Simulated scan of single mutants.
Amino acid sequence: MNLNSMKTVFFMILLMVLFIGLGGILAGRTGMIIAFVIAMGINFFTYWFSDKMVLKMYKAKPVTENEAPELYSIVQRLATKGQLPMPKVYIIQNPSPNAFATGRNPKHAAVAVTTGLKELLTADELEGVLAHEMAHVHGRDILIGTFAATVAGAIMMLADWAQWALIFGGGDDENNPLGIAGIIIAMIVAPLAAMMVQMAISRSREYLADQKGANLCGNPHALANALRKISAGVQKAPMKANAATTHMLIMNPLKGKNLANLFSTHPPVEERIKRLENMAYA
């Protein structure tokens, strides 16, 4: 297990501990049990249904080899090279250049690209992007990322409950071990901590997918050039995206470099390009 993989395991455990611990702060042992049951339900739902929801959300349409021969051929070649099952291939009618992979495991995977991406990149660059997405498939990163986003969202929901509990006097409940002070701390700290952990998980997986994708396509320069073009393209034509799913895309689809982007689930594109170019010269 490499460093990024170990970081992922650590942060996923930390996220679950944070979630269950928040339940404990709100309602003692009972709260911890309820939070644990909710977490298990989240995991079950995420495992079976997240891929269908995301594809529908972005209006992705499945394509056959006859409908998109170049795209299909690249995915098929990468799947064979990476010893992976052939994923389903989707196209999203959107001018913003981007791509993502989804699916609970390699046997039930799908890759999707926007029309803007196909029009912007050369064949080698497109292969680099698809190799990155196939690396996500191989590493089951989509399931991991969706799990992290879902649990982080649940933590924020519990923090909202904490606010209402405070308003209605929940801090005096004997099941709450820390009382009002605990609720206030949970309201402030828990959502921020959840966001930071989710960001750390996603960034580690993105770096790893860049590395594995570059090795799979055999051309780190192509992926680096693709990221450079996609970054510029997203700035010109930002994509309307659900904030809960931006971690799945190869590039943050939202425009700008405001304060919110300090908490982006994606590493800085400059650092990603630098690492890929270092691979090429190694």
Rank of each mutant, 00 (worst) to 15 (best):
M1Y: 12
N2R: 12
S5F: 06
I20T: 10
L22I: 01
G24D: 01
G31E: 08
A35M: 07
I38H: 09
I38M: 15
M40D: 04
F45E: 08
T46P: 03
M53Y: 12
L55S: 06
P62M: 07
A68L: 04
P69D: 08
Q76N: 12
L78S: 05
L78Y: 05
P87M: 04
A99P: 04
A101E: 02
R104W: 03
N105Y: 02
K107Q: 14
H108R: 15
G116E: 09
L117W: 04
E119N: 15
L120P: 11
L121V: 03
T122F: 07
A123N: 15
E127H: 09
E127M: 13
V129Y: 04
A135D: 13
H136E: 06
L143T: 02
F147Q: 13
T150K: 14
M157G: 13
A162H: 06
N175D: 15
L178K: 10
G182D: 09
I184L: 14
A186V: 03
M187C: 12
V189M: 10
A200I: 00
R205P: 00
E206H: 07
A209M: 03
D210P: 06
K212W: 01
G213D: 00
L216S: 02
N219I: 01
N219K: 14
N219V: 00
P220N: 10
I230C: 03
V234Q: 06
P238N: 08
A241P: 02
T245L: 12
I250L: 11
N252K: 08
L259H: 08
P268M: 01
I273Q: 01
I273V: 10
K274N: 12
M279P: 12
A280H: 13
